[in-house]
Amino acid sequence: MTQSSDASFKSTADLPDSVGQPLGALLLSLADNKRLLGIRYADWILGAPTVEAGIACSAMAQDEWGHARIFYSMLKDFGYDPAALEHERPASEYHNSEILDADVSSWPELLALNFLWDTAISVQVEMLVDSRFEPIHYKVRKLLDEERFHFDHAHGWISRMMATEDARAALRDALGAAWNACLCWFGPENDDVVGALSDAGVVSGGSETARSRWLERVGRFASELDLAEGSEGAWTSAREVDWSDWSRERRRRTEGGPDEDSLARARGDRNRSLLMD
């Protein structure tokens, strides 16, 4: 909390527009990313290398969908219609990362999402744990308990695959392809959404802080794959961040959105007739 002397926000009604608007934008980004990440995990329930890994993908998919549901339902108090958000938007209005737009074709690519992207989202969520916006505390703590296992899953698999040269090369390609999108997601240094939230004590730091925390988590393996450099506790990206074509509003590359199949699944199109609420 950056402004510990200030009172906390007990409900959304207490939030000034200058805070409510960016917080809504951040929650929508978290919700869409978790919804699509859940779909990517679900794609591997039957195709994972072992039965146990398939079960893990199933559990992680369910976790992500549950988390997305929590964030979508919170958005009701931010002036959004959760049912419309979940079931009626076109692809161009989704705020998920471009690396989740289509299914991934290999296990190393899924591990890149598991290790880099899932961790990026969790780092941003962790920065809400001590938020001045109190209603979010309980929700994010429970969510982060589940996310520990997602990180350990990715970490355990990557440790194992680092041992063989072929697997290592596949990881280098897969993590390399996801790297820039993850760095960008935290926002540029002067990001207005994260900046406003950080100034108001709603998130515990700005985009540079979030990016550094993410690099702390992924830096060791990333450095072994030439993506990061430095040393423990002080990792930096070995590649310059490429901001071209990045949309501040959608927190992703400007063009595109979930592909047709992903969109239908994200919205639950086939289940529409069963919708009760």
Binding site: V51, E52, F149, H153, R160
Partner: peptide, 16 residues
């Protein structure tokens, strides 16, 4: 559970 290391054994056990 069947796993290649302790870290994954933990995760698999908890999720299975």
């Amino acid at each position: 559970v069947t796993a290649p290391n302790r870290e994954l054994a933990r995760v698999y056990a908890w999720q299975t």
